[in-house]
Computed example of a mutant assay.
Amino acid sequence: MPDDNAQATPAEPKKAKSISYADAGVDITSGDRAKQRIKMLARKTFNKQVLSEIGGFGGLFALDLAKYPEPVLVSSADGVGTKLKVAFELGIHHTVGADLVNHCVNDIAVQGATPLFFLDYLATGRLENDVVETVVRGISEACRANGCALIGGETAQMPGFYADGEYDLAGTIIGAVNRPNIITGEGIEAGDVLLGLPSNGLHTNGYSLARKLLFEVAKYGPEHYVNELKDKAGAALMRTHRSYLSVIKKLTAQPEMVRGMAHITGGGITENLPRILPKGLDAVIDLSAWTPPPLFEHLQHLGNVDRDEMFRTFNMGIGLIAVIPAEQVKKAKAILNRANERHCIIGRIVTRGTRKVVYN
């Protein structure tokens, strides 16, 4: 007779499928392949001061104390911002690396520093090796052009955080200057002249507004040819952020030539020039001194944007301002002419006491 109280033997539980990091969206093998390509690109920027290989926990760089007997390290970190959205739409990834490096180089060069080394950070949802290699190649080439070494960085896979085909890009630069050669603007005086150097378009600032005006208000596509710009909308927005390092070096090689410099980035002339003004001084800008390029005029027209808003958002065609003593202006202009560098006098420093920019 069967025993009614007997317990049935439980079935063996099915083994769960083994789940890997790749199943969660992070492909370590693909990441390793990307890192090998990055190493090759980074090595092209190395010099004798670089003491480490790509892949260590930190990059090693030996400062040349013969060149910098009174060294002061100067650092800056920045990103490319929503200009990347245009890059995604156009599939253009080779210029954003140069945008990033040149922006950071300018930020320290205006303080008299020479770039030493650079670190990049690229984060994406799904790793596309060809895209990563293209971006890093742009970074590597810009580092070489600016004489700095790409000694490390981070490539992060963050599935679920970034949409497929998108990434974020940021960088940190370290430079050096001898203490007596630091340029802070503290020596700026009333009567000094403002010398403006042209930008190459929007550079890397104001893209949220520019994209809204071009793509939402005007309803252009990135490939739409705009007569007012004599270019396609996307191409006009993708012009590379230029480096001013070489021309800055030429100006600062002359004693007492430059009292201050401002890199005109986010905040435009309105917010960047006051960063170097001593107390008690204003900068008066002569709006008749130059004509903003067609891109800026078209953007203003599309959105009926107030003039002050334009100058607080965009560089308006001026990417760098050097503050020059009046007696040095003739010599400064000669230096710039020899370098085939376009420039114009856009204003002066006056005594008013508010540390503001005044537009006339």
Rank of each mutant, 00 (worst) to 15 (best):
Q7S: 12
A8I: 14
P10I: 06
S18E: 13
A22D: 13
D23Q: 05
D27E: 12
I28Y: 11
D32S: 13
K35Y: 15
Q36R: 15
R37I: 12
A42N: 05
F46G: 07
F46K: 04
G56M: 08
G56R: 10
G58T: 14
L60T: 11
F61W: 15
D64G: 07
A66K: 13
P69C: 08
L73F: 15
S76M: 09
S76P: 00
A77C: 13
D78F: 00
V80E: 01
T82K: 11
K85S: 11
V86D: 06
A87Q: 01
F88I: 04
G97P: 06
G97Y: 01
A98Q: 01
D99K: 03
C104W: 03
N106Y: 04
D107V: 11
A109R: 01
G112R: 01
A113D: 04
T114G: 00
P115V: 04
L116C: 06
D120S: 15
D120C: 12
Y121V: 13
Y121P: 00
L122A: 08
A123W: 00
T124A: 12
R126S: 14
R126K: 15
R126W: 11
L127G: 02
E128Q: 14
D130S: 14
D130K: 14
T134D: 11
V136I: 15
V136G: 01
A142P: 05
N146T: 01
N146E: 04
G147S: 03
C148T: 11
E154Q: 14
T155I: 15
F161D: 12
F161T: 14
Y162A: 04
G165L: 08
G165K: 04
E166A: 11
E166L: 10
Y167M: 09
Y167Q: 05
N178F: 03
N181M: 12
I182A: 10
E189G: 04
G191E: 09
L194W: 06
P198Y: 08
S199C: 07
S199N: 04
T204M: 08
N205L: 03
S208P: 02
A210P: 01
F215R: 01
G221H: 09
G221F: 09
P222N: 13
K230D: 14
D231R: 11
G234Y: 05
M238P: 00
R242P: 13
Y244V: 05
Y244R: 00
T252E: 11
E256I: 02
V258K: 00
V258E: 01
H263D: 07
I264A: 06
G267F: 10
T270G: 00
E271I: 09
N272T: 08
P274V: 06
I276G: 03
A283G: 08
A283V: 08
I285L: 03
A289F: 12
A289T: 07
E297Q: 15
L299M: 10
L299Q: 04
Q300T: 10
V305C: 02
R312P: 01
N315H: 08
M316D: 07
G317R: 05
G319H: 02
L320C: 06
Q328L: 03
V329S: 07
A332F: 09
A332G: 01
N337W: 08
N337F: 07
N340C: 10
H343R: 05
I346T: 05
I349R: 03
I349C: 05
T351K: 15
T351L: 13
R352F: 09
G353V: 07
V357P: 02
V357K: 01
V358S: 03
Y359L: 09
